[in-house]
Design a protein around this nucleic acid. Structure first.
Length: 241
DNA sequence: GCATTAACACGTA
DNA sequence: TACGTGTTAATGC
C-alpha cells in the first residue's frame, strides 16, 4: 500500500481521447438523451485505457468526473486502518458511478482501481450538472440507478452475513449480473476466478470449487475467462439460503 | 473441518 | 508465450 498525500499523480483522463462510434453503444445513458443533449455529452466525454492496479478514483480527491466502464473490470474499495481492504463492489462493463459524490460536490469517499486492463469513460462534472439541470430523461435514468443501487447494497449486506463460501460467490455473481446497473455484462460476465476471489475475499481454489457447485445446480456455466448466467433468480435464492 | 498457500500439468488466447 | 483453470498436498486457524 503506497500513500502519497499531496503528490498528485496524473489523473487517468488527462491522457484521454474522444469516444469512438463503437464505444457509444457501451454507454447506456447516452441513448435516453435528446439528440442535442447527446451531442453535448459526447463532446465532453473522455475515454482512456487503464492498467491492472491503476486507480481511476482516489479517496479524498475532488470529484471531477462521472465515470463509467466501457470494457474490463474495476473494484470499489477502501483501505482500513489496520492495513486491510474493504471491497464494496465489483464494477463491470456498463456501470456508471460517482453520481452521489458529484451531486454533493464532495471529494470521493472510496478508491476505484482496475482489476484488469479496462476502458474507462468520464463525463466532466460541469457536463454532468448541465444534464442534471436540463434533461428529464437523464434525471430519470439517474433516479432509477440510485434506486437500484440501494437494493444492491441491501443485498450486499445480506451476502456479507452468509458464511458459506458457495453462497457468497453466488451472491456476488448475482450482483454482477444486475441488468440495470451493469447493462454491458449481458449473459456472459468476463471475469477470472482469481478476480472473483479478490472481490469475494476467497482464494482462487475455493472460488473454483464454488463455481463448480453452482454449475452442478444449473445456475451458471463456467467458461474460459468468464461465467455465464443460467438462472439469475435461482442464483440470488442460492445466495440467501 | 475447512480454507489458504504453493506447486504443477494442461489447455487456451 | 503468457495466462487461466483444475487439481493435489502441505499448512494453519
Amino acid at each position: 500500500m503506497r500513500i502519497n498525500w499531496g503528490v498528485p499523480e496524473r489523473p487517468v483522463l488527462e491522457r484521454a481521447r474522444d469516444v469512438t462510434e463503437q464505444e457509444w453503444a457501451g454507454i447506456p445513458w447516452l441513448r435516453v438523451l435528446s439528440p442535442e443533449h447527446q451531442d453535448a455529452a459526447v463532446a465532453g466525454l473522455r475515454v482512456a485505457k487503464v492498467q491492472p492496479g491503476e486507480r481511476i478514483v482516489r479517496l479524498g480527491r475532488p470529484a471531477t468526473f462521472w465515470f463509467g466502464v466501457v470494457d474490463g473490470l474495476l473494484k470499489m474499495s477502501n483501505d482500513t486502518p489496520s492495513g486491510g481492504t474493504i471491497t464494496y463492489m465489483g464494477v463491470p462493463p456498463g456501470a456508471w458511478f460517482g453520481e452521489g459524490t458529484l451531486i454533493k460536490r464532495e471529494p470521493y469517499r472510496y478508491n476505484i482501481e482496475a482489476l484488469r486492463r479496462s476502458t474507462v469513460a468520464g463525463l466532466p462534472i460541469e457536463d454532468f450538472h448541465a444534464l442534471l439541470d436540463r434533461s428529464i430523461p437523464f434525471n430519470r435514468y439517474l433516479m432509477n440507478q440510485l434506486n437500484e443501487r440501494l437494493g444492491h447494497f441491501i443485498a450486499a449486506r445480506e451476502i456479507d452475513r452468509q458464511d458459506d463460501p458457495d453462497s457468497r460467490v453466488a451472491g456476488s455473481l448475482a450482483q454482477l449480473f444486475n441488468p440495470v446497473l451493469y447493462p454491458g455484462v449481458g449473459g456472459l460476465l468476463r471475469i477470472t476466478q482469481q478476480e472473483l476471489g479478490y472481490l469475494v475475499g476467497l482464494s482462487r481454489q475455493r472460488v473454483n470449487q464454488a463455481l463448480n457447485t453452482l454449475a452442478e445446480h444449473g445456475l451458471i456455466g463456467i467458461e474460459y475467462g468468464g461465467v455465464r448466467v443460467r438462472d439469475l433468480a435461482a442464483l440470488r435464492a442460492f445466495s440467501m439460503r
